[in-house]
Design a protein around this nucleic acid. Structure first.
Lengths: 225, 225
DNA sequence: GTGTCGATACCAACCGGTCGGTACTGTGTC
DNA sequence: GACACAGTACCGACCGGTTGGTATCGACAC
């Protein structure tokens, strides 16, 4: 997949793109996230990432000691970007924790847009192929998946207190389940080359969460459709 | 670790000590399944597979035109082995389709034994890294995941007729959801380096299936009131 | 100058795939 | 049953291109 920055600059370009000075690392990380999501970690070469970032190997190995270190940094970069997306998502404004939990699923469904590599998860992708051979990558993916799950678990815990105080499950366990569904939905979407199956999975996940946090069990009341 | 003799040997095999002459292909496929599940497709070299099978590159390229063709054959090999496992599993004997659906989840939970590469899914692993770069592998994984889901969907359809005739979901959609949970559970298990989280996910899946196929709702069979 | 940052040139190891060759097996022929 | 012959199964050295990583140097900022 040729990137758009392959094109040579126009002959009359006065300043060949003033490369701002501290930008290279971020560009490399952005490129790494995109390309690894599309091709996987092992199949992605350092040159691929450099080409995607419009830089050279000199820059790459100036910022990262190795390809593996770049992958770990890319996991952190991806997680940070994701966190800011979810932190500012509209569903976060709901007062009712149950609404936030269901809103999370709706939001995840809403962002199943564009091409597959644009909405699938770098962490799940790298985990699958590096979990045994690259411990540092595995640990990074585990950590950031866990941190995201912990955010979901907070809302679930609050909702549980209000709507299902006697539930059999723990908030952490249910939060991890939501992540499993999401990761699995991505796998199926990749296999089928389409996001529709992932949306269906999120519908099932929402239905499960609705039954486990029954709306009638607390003060808010909800009508059946 | 290298399960060279997984196949049940014939009871009265003449068993000449030297490796029998038509065995190489099966050994290569067994090795490919094992190693790709542990390392991923791209990180697995042809030499790795040959070493795992105790053979040489000459043998490999005698049986497969390319590494990719071997991966496609390995997917088929893996799917065939899995199919025979599930076909003969005890839960298949249940008369009640609901019991078969729940028994399927219990069985999947029961086989979360041993090291991670031994129970995770080759199809999901290869899909994640090859879905864009190796169309033939993607298609094979899609096909075999779909065929397995279709088997699950049969039981779900029968259970739905009896226990949830008015359910919102289709059997196919719910069957795919079970596969998503399983694939996602594998991803989390790999990230955490342990199968416990996968078992938790299967508990949630079972709970969802129980609520969607309510046991008390069994309609009188055959005769309508 | 000194340190940061990136480019260019280069290397040794490795990888998928090729190729000429060998060993074994089955078959038709006498 | 000996033999020639053909086809299949397998071996392992080898090749060209690629890969992660290194060495060196120039350009700019302070």
């Amino acid at each position: 997949m040729p990137s758009t920055s392959d094109l040579p600059p126009p002959p009359n370009a006065p300043a060949p793109a003033p490369p701002r000075r501290g930008e290279a690392r971020a560009k490399l990380l952005d490129a790494a996230v995109d390309i690894i999501r599309a091709q996987g970690y092992a199949a992605t070469t350092v040159d691929d990432i450099c080409r995607g970032a419009g830089l050279t190997k000199g820059a790459f190995f100036h910022h990262f000691a190795s390809k593996e270190e770049c992958a770990v940094a890319a996991a952190a970069h991806f997680a940070a970007r994701a966190q800011s997306v979810f932190e500012t998502a509209p569903y976060r404004g709901a007062v009712d924790p149950r609404a936030r939990v269901l809103g999370y699923v709706d939001f995840r469904k809403a962002i199943l847009q564009g091409a597959l590599p644009q909405f699938t998860c770098l962490l799940g992708t790298m985990t699958q192929e590096a979990y045994q051979t690259h411990p540092a990558i595995r640990a990074a993916c585990d950590r950031y998946i866990g941190e995201h799950a912990a955010c979901v678990a907070e809302d679930i815990a609050a909702a549980r207190r209000l709507y299902a105080p006697g539930a059999e499950w723990t908030p952490d366990s249910l939060a991890l389940f939501t992540q499993a569904v999401i990761q699995g939905a991505f796998v199926l979407a990749k296999a089928r080359h389409g996001a529709a199956v992932a949306a269906d999975c999120l519908d099932h996940l929402r239905r499960y969460l609705e039954t486990q946090l029954p709306a009638g069990a607390a003060k808010p009341r909800r009508k059946a459709p």
